[in-house]
């Protein structure tokens, strides 16, 4: 917070009574706008929350946000309904997400460093290849990939979901980090090499510490996307004890048969809690980073 305030004064550079007043009015206006927008953003989630407490036969016709009667039955039913408690699914999702974060941060930053900072033959070619893997719809590589993982004996384990992350398979993050690394002053490297630093030391001691915002961004996205991912777990996990939360959620509803909509909305709401907390915690890291180091260029 402090840095935010400092930043503002520095950025605007204004002073005096009138500007302060003007600023107060502006801030009020900004708050008003932001609150209004927040309600707009939040409405669907509030609706979901209310649906989770609503009698099931009201969910699809009710127009008001306020349920006619409140009940936590959906939560109880949802948590225990699948023979295995939802705690197992939360744990599975958490394990996969944490491993994915470690893998992505470690290996994507290595690759990004190579693409952004090192000279080597074929760099442009490999960079194009890397981006190319981003462009093919996954639906058509699914089956060959499944065959591969099946031959390796990895089906029905977390390995197909986690190992690729440790092999920098997520081009999105490589590209993201490349863009940020390239934004860092190149004199840093040149100065470091004067001091006799190896590329590894430049990567580890200079670039990474200055890259907190992008690393935090990568961590947040990895967590959320892994947490929300549905298709890969659907294909690779079969044993319900290995299910992730998203996979478990999809078992509540089958549109041709009797479904548990209340349970779906109740558990969907609960599933949002960990991601939301994770986001709140990690976004603080976004605020730190180079902007606060006062580095000279």
């Amino acid at each position: 917070m402090i840095t935010d305030v400092q930043r503002l004064t520095v950025v605007t550079g204004d002073s005096g009574e009138t500007t302060r007043l003007r600023k107060g009015a502006l801030s009020l206006l900004a708050h008003g706008l932001l609150t209004l927008a927040s309600i707009l953003m939040l409405y669907p989630l509030l609706w979901m929350l209310s649906a989770s407490f609503r009698p099931e036969n009201e969910i699809f016709t009710a127009t008001s946000l306020w349920p006619s009667s409140w009940s936590i039955q959906s939560y109880i039913r949802g948590w225990t309904g699948l023979r295995i408690g939802f705690d197992t699914f939360f744990l599975n999702s958490l394990i996969i997400a944490v491993l994915a974060i470690i893998g992505n941060l470690a290996t994507c930053s290595l690759a990004a460093f190579a693409f952004a900072r090192l000279e080597f033959r074929g760099r442009r070619f490999w960079f194009a290849m890397m981006l190319g893997t981003l462009m093919l719809p996954y639906q058509v590589t699914l089956i060959p990939q499944y065959v591969l993982f099946h031959q390796l004996g990895w089906v029905n384990t977390f390995l197909p979901l986690v190992v690729p992350k440790f092999l920098a398979a997520d081009s999105f993050f490589i590209f993201l980090m490349v863009q940020f690394f390239r934004g860092l002053p190149k004199e840093l490297d040149e100065a470091a090499m004067m001091d006799g630093c190896s590329p590894w030391r430049i990567y580890w001691k200079i670039l990474l510490p200055l890259s907190t915002p992008v690393l935090a961004t990568a961590a947040i996205f990895t967590f959320i996307w892994t947490w929300d991912d549905f298709f890969a777990p659907l294909i690779y996990l079969s044993d319900i004890r290995t299910y992730t939360v998203q996979l478990a959620l999809r078992t509540f509803v089958d549109s041709s048969a009797e479904s548990d909509w209340g349970g779906l909305f109740a558990m969907s709401t609960l599933t949002l809690v960990p991601v939301f907390i994770f986001f709140l915690v990690f976004q603080r890291l976004l605020i730190e980073g180079i902007a606060t180091t006062g580095m000279k260029r």
Partner: peptide, 15 residues
């Protein structure tokens, strides 16, 4: 080219 390819090693294995 050494360092570049070294840093890309995990990516190459995956690729």
């Amino acid at each position: 080219n050494g360092p570049g390819y070294l840093f890309l090693l995990p990516w190459f294995i995956g690729f």
